[in-house]
Amino acid sequence: MLNELDFSAVIVTIKLALVSTAILILIGTPIAWWLSQTKFKFKAVFEAIIALPLILPPTVLGFYLLITLGSNGPIGKLLESLGGSSIAFTFSGLVVGSVIYSMPFVVQPLQNSFNSVGRVPLEVAATLGASKIDRFFSVAVPLARSGFITATVLGFAHTVGEFGVVLMMGGNIPGETGVLSIAIYDHVEAMEYGQAHLLAGGLLATSFLMLIFVYIINRHFSIMRSKD
């Protein structure tokens, strides 16, 4: 069964994924909405920045985050001058890394589903007396609900599975920054294949189930739409 260290890795991982996903939805929703509505000329630049983590080796991202957030980095210095401390090698640092790393997995499905809502329902809402912000919450969000479900599940699953960023800036501190993917790596390094199997298999099964859920939900919504 799981030893204490592995158990704490599971807890840290779930906590990290939950916190990151919540923040991702909060930040990703307005970004996705803006990208779906704007006619801004340099929109592509922003889309490229958001999509960067898709192709960049996570170690590159982790490296730059370490430099920026560390006590000698600009943000680290800023935090220290404000009476705080550097967030490299802390849980908060991991959250920052995860949010950036998983951003495209949240923004892209949201942006796609906002696009597919189209402008007509929003115009209808305007003619019925709904203000901009009212239209967003009463029309755009409910019509884009499948996008929210996809974004939440993908954001969560992708954060659970991250390795490179955590390796670079996490430090594997048990109960603080020690996450599952690192724990598996450690087990393999120590030739503890049984333990590694348990964690890896669990992760595989969970990820698989979450993806099945996403595809079923999307199928359900697309069937509902095609009925009209």
């Binding site: 007509v120 115009e123 809402a125 305007a126 003619t127 007396g129 029309v139 019509l143």
Partner: peptide, 17 residues
Amino acid sequence: HKRQIGYVFQDAALFEH
């Protein structure tokens, strides 16, 4: 949204949700 209008769109455009 501040104009007192009733607007009927070509294909009804009911809210599907």
